[in-house]
Structures are given as structure tokens and as C-alpha cells.
Design a protein around this nucleic acid. Structure first.
Length: 854
RNA sequence: GCCGGGGUGGCGGAAUUGGCAGACGCGUCGGACUUAAAAUCCGAUGGCCUUUUGGCCGUGCGGGUUCGAGUCCCGCCCCCGGCACCA
């Protein structure tokens, strides 16, 4: 890129004002201030590399402009910053550079912070947080202990009028027969209800990362989201969080927030609630029942077989009774691997067990199959096969020569027997007491019948599963739990938190995939909080999400030693007014953090039911070649370099100008140069006005026009910023400036222009503001007030159409009526030419358009 | 397959929600300044026709509603993101 002497010395200017702003704590957010509060939050960065990337740069400067605007509008703005530094990426980075992750993260953070300051970020640094700081993760651990100490009562009335609340485990009713068996039995009973519980269960395990992986982190093709290597299924003892208890509230409370429809949909789909029924099929030759889940109980008379998941309880319990146990065993083994890895296989494979289930109504015997299309963790892990009305069942029946019974027919005419009839518009047939009913009515009636005859009941099923909350590596919050041979698992007493992550001489994973904490004998050894005997600490750490789920609350009270957050401060600041983040976090992070928040709400830590009032998604910045920036492609634009070369104001204004905030856009050096030219011209314009002492003799009239347009500009730019439309806000300033660049401004008008530009280019506007002679910072002045009287002084142009085609324009005062506009239009020779033969009709839209129809 | 979001100049993108399509920026072309170049400034820039005045065509494709459609309705095509054997 060609270089020339800069028009102004941005380096000196930026350094000077940054120092001034920091020294004076200009952007301090004040608790309990009288002004209305405004909480702007952008997802905090993960410092897994040495410096910021352009995407960070874009998001943080865009909302910096947003925060600056709201401050100028008179709000007490909280725009905080912190660091999400636990987790695997940083752990891997530390190993790569051969440093203890404590030190590696500290170094990265130092640089991130330096860069953010350089960019002019108006953060309140007194509220800086870091998830790896023991003073911070003390509270991450505290939350975990609270989860452990609570259970969910779905019927408990909440103070907000809703139903369902987390209650202390001591309030859990214990059945008499359990009580009789003593304290051990009571604890075992309680453990089944805790919101944090340990479960031995099949979980995904990534052999490459050497860690357990949450279901949600596994891609559709069976690979790990982070490293894209295939995962395996393993049995591991894991801490789990019972998010499913909050599923209904997480759906219902979406009514309280202003997320876009697509984000709400993403949340709803992820939870995946479906209403259906449980139906009991007796297992022939036993006293057991097989419980199946169905969303179509109306087709109960169409059942011709039953299918269970390969890893269901049924399989392990009855494997000795199967007709061909060896064949079944082989199939199950194969099916489990297939289920965990490739889910795309559409062949309807399955194996007959040799056992039969008894239809709960007709008492017919139907065969029981094992098939990999049934998954154990949805519904009951068993389904009823209705080949006539489910395409997948249809294919399975064809494959295994099973009968097909038609029990629903289309309202008008015949059906096609080559495929299942899945429509819900049909009428039920061949179904005893359901005959003649529509599908909806039949579903209702069937469930009533099941309930009455005790063969089934209504049931909700969720796609959402409980959350695996253990990670088998080093760089995370230690799980504050202790195991004692005598007393089992118990939480570390709250007054002993935090359980600090120890510094180790070797912080790397062992060859066998075990965590270094398992080797930290000194650290592991502790005493049981219940009996005082010897005990061992949990060596699994928490997932990366643990610290990032609630961080926005700590900004409100970052130095509180007694509490996670002072209730009154939370009451003042919550909810977050605007939360910006990546699209990839619209499901998991958003849902999990809402869940954690709702739990904190239940236990009285926070005042309002939802944490984020409005959610905005940001796009990525691609390389100049339109591809994702990466070192291997060599298309990385380093923020530090461009800021050094062109100044923070140019980079800031450009990243906001490049396109809509939620769009993924390619970087363009050339387009950035356009912004640089614009700011250079502003500098020259303002400087020469200042140097000439605002001599506007002879241009008073133009200055009045300028003032009228400026009045409108301030409003439009402000509206655009509120709507997160930074690109058009800047375009409007450019448009204005193109029009008036030749008119020397009055001091008043120049000051207004600088204020409008200040959120985008805080450094040069501050410098020019002071050169004018102002003593206070421009960033704490008030945004120009809109004057509707001034707006009225401006003429408007009404477009004149003939038969819908534009044929001319007439200038009129705003609010002119049809008669006046028409008269003026008819005076126009060019327009008259098109209506020589007269006209039939006139349509007028005030101040906009006049359409003459001939 | 399902859910969500889109398709507008050479490029990134604008269009008070039914009212001048292409704001703003880039690029390109022409000009000024310069020995020359860069930088800067001025002008032009959707396509086609026309000497000019001007005319016609244009927002993925095909229909429709309307005085008027990028925007609304019906039927297609394509692209991006998320989820997917969910019973």
C-alpha cells in the first residue's frame, strides 16, 4: 500500500487522549446513579492467541460506538470487559508455547487489553474480570455447590406467579421407608434429585483431545466440534447439571425477551419439546412392561411391531432370553458404534429378539426388534412400529417383512400403499372406539383411554439432555467436591472456597489421557467435610462454559468478597440491555447461561427472570480473498498493524462502515482507504475553520441550511446507532459532508458535526473539540437535541408520476396538500406533456409522491 | 428432510416497510495539479437506443394484486447458516 505523510499526527493524538481518558476514568459506570442505566455487553474474548483478531476489533469497536452514543444521550452506561481464559484452547496454546497456562493466559490478556485500549474502547476497567482469577472462580465453584445443594420442585409456586423452583435439598420430602433405612439411604435418595449429580453414563469421548465431550459439542457427522476428529462412546463418571428441569421455563420465558424470531426458534428447537404419550406393552412371558413413547397415540391400532434402542435396559436385561443371542450381541456392538459416529445411514437395519410384546388393547402379540434408528436418550428408548403411518417404520416393515395395518385414511378418497400416510388431516379407521375421529381428537381420546385403563399417559419429551459438566484435563476450575470412603461425595464448605488450581511442575496430560491433577498427590489429599477423615478431591475440572455462563453478573460487583453480586446492584443494572455475540452461541451458550441465571434467580441471587433483554448476532471478518482468515492461507489482517499505519479512528470507522453488523464480510484495504480519506477531509475542514477563527461572513445563509440538515443528521445517526446500523449511520455523515464540505461552518455547527462523529472516531473528534477551545471531553457532552421546528423550515421534493412513472419533481413546504402540489405539478411543462388528454384520477401521499392517472 | 436467513451494478452494500431502485464507499474511465509518478482535487459511471432534448429495459425465474411492487400474494430455481433415523 502506498504511503504518504499523514494529514494529522494520529499517533500523538491517540496516545494523548487515551492517557487522559484512563487517568480521568471518563467511562466509569456508576452504581445507583440517578441517570437511567444502560448495560451493553459483548461476549468477552477468549485469549487463546497472542493478540486480537479483526473480528474482535469489529465487535468491540461497534458496541463502543453504541456505548458512547448512549452515554451522550444521558445514560449511565456499563460497557465492561473481561477474559474467558479457562478451557482447552488456551491449555493447548500453553503446551504449544511451552508455558504454564497461568503465565500464557496472563501474557495474552495483557496484550489483548493493550490492544483494546489502543482502539479507543471506552470500557470501565475498574470492573475487569478474569475467569481464571481465584477471586472470580470462587464464585463459579460456589454456583456449582449451590446446584449440588438444590433440587427442582416443578410444582412449587414462585413469587413471580410461575410454577417450579429450585429448593434446598433439605426441603426434599423423604419417603418414610427411606427414612427408616438411615442417613446413608437418605443421602442416596437425595442424590437422585440434586441439580448437580454424578452419573456413570455413556458419554462421548474424544481420543484426540483426550477428554469427555458434551453431546452438544459433537458434530452431526460424529466428530468433535473443536478438533474434528471422530469421537468414541465411553462409560465415565461425570458430574451432570440437570438443565432438563428448566426446559419448559427456558421456552416459556422467551416471551419476556426481545430476541429475533430466528434466535428464539433456535432455542426452542434445541430444547425440542414434543407432546405425546407413554404406552405400556407387556413383555410376553414376563411380568415386565416395555414403555414406549409416541407422538401418534391415535395410531395405536396400527402397531405391528415394537423396536428398542441397542443400548436400552431391555437389551441388557433379556439378552439371555433372545432367540439368537450371539447374532443380537454382534448387531448391538456394531449399532452402538454406528450411532455414535455416522448417523446418516438410512438402511433400516435391525434384529429380531425372538421375544414378543402384548398389544395393550387388542392383546395381539407383536415382535420386539432391536434397531439402531432408535436412540436410548430420547423418549423411553423404545418405539411402537406403525408402518402405515410413519415412513421410517414403513421402510423397516418392508425390510423385515412385517405386516402393515392402515388405521388412518385421507378425508377424501384412497391412499397410496407405496408409502406411509403421515398426514394429520385424516380420519381414523379400523380402530374400535377411535373410528371416525379426526387425528387430533383421536390423540386426545386415546390418551384418555390409556389413562383410564392404566396402560399409558400423556408425556412430554425433550431433545435437550442434561449437561455433562466434567472435563478430564488441567486448565479449568477445580470441581469443589470431595470423596470420602465413608461419606461419599460432599461439597467443599463454602467458606473454604475457592479450591485453587495448583501450579504444577508438569501441567501436561499423561500419555494415558489422565489429567495432571490426578498426579497432584499433595493437592488431592484433604479431609472429609462431614466426618473429618481422610478424603480426596475431585480431579475433574469444569468445562469452559462454567465461567462464561455468569460473567456478566460479576461485572456488576467485581470486588465483592462476600457475595457473587450484591442484590441491589444486580437490581439496578439487570437485565443486560443489549447482548452481542456470535451466531454459534445462539443455541448453547445462550441457553446454558439462561439456565444458570434462572437457577440463581430461584435461589434469590438475582432479581429478574431473564438475563438478556435483547440479543444481537455479529458477523465475521473474512480475509481480503473472501475466505476465513487463517495463518496457513496467509490472508490474516493484523489489527495492530493497520492501527499503527492508519490510526484507530480509521480502523474503527471502517469496520463499522464495511456492512451490516450481522453480515460476514471480506476485509478490503481499498475500502478502508476511502474511510481514511473521509476522516482526513474532516480534519482539514475543521482545522481550517478553527484556524480562520470561524469566519463565516457571507455564508450565513448556507450555515442556516447546514444547521437544518445537521439537526436532521443527528437524529438519523442516533436512530441508526440504536438500531445497530452503524454502516448507514456513517454513510449518512459522509453524505452530509459531501454536500457541505465547501461551506465554512460556524463554531456551533462544527461542534454539532464533531459530536455526531464522536462515537465512531473518538480521537480526532476529541482533539478538534479541544482545539476549538473546549475544556471538557467531547465524550461526556450531550448528543445534539433534535429541533422539530428546524425540520419544518426545510422544503421537501414531491415526486410527480404519471401512470406510475416518474415525470418530474416539485419542491413544496412540508405538509402541503394535494391541491397545492397538483397545481404546481401542472405548471410544469414537461409533466403537462404526458397528460394532454386530461386525467381520471390523482393519488397523493403527503410529502412523498403525486401520481396522476390518465 | 426440517427450521432459520438470503438472492439488488464490476465489487461491499442502501432503500421511513408499498412511493425517485442503486444512498455511501470501493473500483473503473476522463480531467486538473506535477518534468513524471504518488497523494490530492474536479467530473462521469446499471444496461440498451439517441447528435441533443429524451426514450425503453432493469432488484434470481414465471404469474398475480395495486394508481404504483426490490418490498405484498401464488408457483418455481439457487445460495448460506443451524439441526437431523427424535418415534
Amino acid at each position: 500500500m502506498a504511503r504518504s505523510k499523514p494529514v494529522y499526527d494520529f499517533k500523538t493524538i491517540e496516545k494523548k487522549w487515551n492517557k487522559y481518558w484512563l487517568d480521568n476514568k471518563l467511562y466509569k459506570a456508576i452504581d445507583f446513579d440517578k441517570r437511567p442505566k444502560y448495560y451493553v455487553l459483548v461476549e468477552f474474548p477468549y485469549p487463546s492467541a497472542a493478540g486480537l483478531h479483526m473480528g474482535h476489533c469489529r465487535n468491540y469497536t461497534a458496541f463502543d460506538a453504541y456505548a458512547r452514543y448512549f452515554r451522550m444521550k444521558g445514560y449511565n452506561v456499563l460497557y465492561p470487559m473481561g477474559w474467558d481464559a479457562f478451557g482447552l484452547p488456551l491449555y493447548n496454546y500453553a503446551i504449544k508455547v511451552g508455558k504454564d497456562p497461568h503465565d500464557a493466559s496472563e501474557e495474552n490478556i495483557r496484550n489483548f487489553k493493550k490492544q483494546l485500549i489502543k482502539l479507543g474502547g471506552s470500557f470501565d476497567w475498574d470492573r475487569e474480570i478474569n475467569t481464571t482469577d481465584p477471586e472470580y472462580y470462587k464464585w463459579t465453584q460456589w454456583i456449582f455447590v449451590q446446584f449440588y445443594n438444590h433440587w427442582y420442585d416443578p410444582e412449587y409456586p414462585r413469587k413471580d406467579g410461575g410454577k417450579g423452583k429450585a429448593r434446598h435439598i433439605d426441603e426434599l420430602p423423604i419417603p418414610e421407608e427411606v427414612k427408616k433405612k438411615g442417613p446413608k439411604a437418605i443421602k442416596d435418595y437425595q442424590d437422585k434429585f440434586r441439580l448437580a449429580y454424578k452419573a456413570k453414563m455413556p458419554v462421548f469421548y474424544c481420543p484426540s483431545c483426550k477428554m469427555g465431550v458434551a453431546n452438544e459439542e459433537v458434530e452431526a457427522d460424529g466428530t468433535h466440534e473443536r478438533c474434528h476428529n471422530p469421537v468414541e462412546v465411553r462409560e465415565l463418571e461425570q458430574w451432570m447439571l440437570r438443565i432438563t428441569a428448566y426446559a419448559d421455563r427456558l421456552i416459556e420465558d422467551l416471551d419476556l425477551v426481545d430476541y429475533s424470531e430466528s434466535i428464539k426458534q433456535a432455542q426452542i428447537n434445541w430444547i425440542g419439546r414434543k407432546y405425546g404419550a407413554l404406552v405400556n406393552f407387556k413383555i410376553d412371558g414376563t411380568d415386565d412392561v416395555l414403555e414406549v413413547y409416541t407422538t401418534r397415540p391415535d395410531t395405536i391400532f396400527g402397531v405391528t411391531f415394537v423396536v428398542v434402542a441397542p443400548d436400552s435396559e431391555f437389551v441388557s436385561k433379556y439378552q439371555d432370553k433372545f432367540a439368537e443371542p450371539e447374532k443380537v450381541k454382534a448387531y448391538v456392538k456394531e449399532a452402538l458404534v454406528k450411532q455414535a459416529t455416522e448417523s446418516m445411514d438410512r438402511s433400516k437395519s435391525g434384529v429380531f429378539t425372538g421375544m414378543y410384546a402384548i398389544h395393550p388393547i387388542t392383546k395381539e402379540k407383536v415382535p420386539i426388534y432391536i434397531a439402531d434408528f432408535v436412540v436410548s436418550d430420547y423418549g423411553t428408548g423404545a418405539v411402537m412400529g406403525v408402518p402405515a403411518h410413519d415412513q421410517r417404520d414403513y421402510e423397516f416393515a418392508k425390510e423385515h417383512n412385517l405386516p402393515i395395518k392402515w388405521v388412518v385414511k385421507p378425508r377424501d378418497g384412497e391412499w397410496n400403499e407405496d408409502k406411509a400416510y403421515e398426514s394429520r388431516d385424516g380420519v381414523v379407521i379400523n380402530s374400535d372406539f377411535l373410528n371416525g375421529l379426526g387425528v387430533k381428537e383421536a390423540i386426545q381420546k386415546a390418551i384418555e383411554y390409556f389413562t383410564e385403563h392404566k396402560i399409558g399417559k400423556m408425556h412430554k419429551a425433550y431433545h435437550l439432555r442434561d449437561w455433562v459438566f466434567s472435563r478430564q484435563h488441567y486448565w479449568g476450575e477445580p470441581t469443589p467436591m470431595v470423596y470420602c470412603e465413608k461419606c461419599g461425595w460432599n461439597p467443599v464448605p463454602v467458606d473454604e472456597l475457592p479450591v485453587k488450581l495448583p501450579r504444577l511442575s508438569d501441567y501436561r496430560m499423561a500419555e494415558d489421557g489422565t489429567s495432571p491433577l490426578q498426579r497432584a498427590e499433595e493437592w488431592k489429599k484433604t479431609t472429609c467435610p462431614v466426618c473429618g477423615g481422610p478424603a480426596e478431591r475431585e480431579t475433574d475440572v469444569m468445562p469452559n462454559w462454567a465461567g462464561s455462563n455468569w460473567y456478566y453478573l460479576r461485572y456488576l460487583d467485581p470486588h465483592n468478597k462476600e457475595k457473587l453480586v450484591d442484590y441491589n446492584k444486580a437490581e439496578y443494572w439487570m437485565p443486560v440491555d443489549l447482548y452481542d455475540g456470535g451466531a454459534e452461541h445462539n443455541t448453547m451458550h445462550l441457553l446454558y447461561s439462561r439456565f444458570v441465571y434462572k437457577f440463581l434467580y430461584d435461589i434469590g441471587v438475582v432479581p429478574v427472570p431473564e438475563p438478556y433483554q435483547r440479543r444481537i448476532t455479529h458477523g465475521l471478518v473474512l480475509g481480503p480473498d473472501g475466505k476465513k482468515m487463517s495463518k496457513s492461507r496467509g490472508n490474516v489482517i493484523n489489527p495492530d498493524e493497520v492501527v499503527d499505519q492508519f490510526g484507530a479512528d480509521v480502523v474503527r470507522t471502517y469496520v463499522m462502515f464495511m456492512g451490516p453488523h450481522d453480515a460476514t464480510l471480506p476485509w478490503s484495504d481499498e475500502a478502508m482507504m476511502g474511510v481514511k480519506r473521509f476522516l482526513d477531509r474532516i480534519w482539514v475542514y475543521a482545522s481550517s475553520a478553527i484556524d480562520s477563527g470561524f469566519n463565516i461572513r457571507g455564508v450565513e445563509k448556507e450555515n442556516q441550511e447546514l444547521k437544518i440538515d445537521l439537526n436532521e443528521l443527528a437524529k438519523k445517526v442516533g436512530d441508526d446507532i440504536s438500531k445497530v446500523k452503524f454502516n448507514t449511520a456513517i454513510a449518512k455523515i459522509m453524505e452530509f459532508f459531501n454536500k457541505y464540505e465547501k461551506i465554512p461552518p460556524s463554531r456551533e455547527n462544527l461542534e454539532i458535526l464533531l459530536k455526531i462523529l464522536a462515537p465512531f472516531a473518538p480521537f480526532i473528534t476529541e482533539e478538534l473539540w479541544h482545539r476549538i477551545g473546549n475544556k471538557e471531553s467531547i465524550h461526556i457532552t450531550r448528543w445534539p437535541e433534535y429541533d422539530p421546528g428546524l425540520a419544518k423550515q426545510k422544503e421537501v421534493e414531491v415526486v410527480v408520476q404519471v401512470n406510475g412513472k416518474v415525470r418530474g419533481k416539485v419542491p413544496v413546504r412540508p405538509g402541503a396538500d394535494q391541491e397545492e402540489v397538483l397545481k404546481k405539478a401542472l405548471e410544469d411543462e414537461k409533466i403537462r406533456r404526458y397528460i394532454e388528454d386530461g386525467y381520471r384520477k390523482v393519488v397523493y401521499v403527503q410529502d412523498k409522491v403525486l401520481n396522476i392517472v390518465t
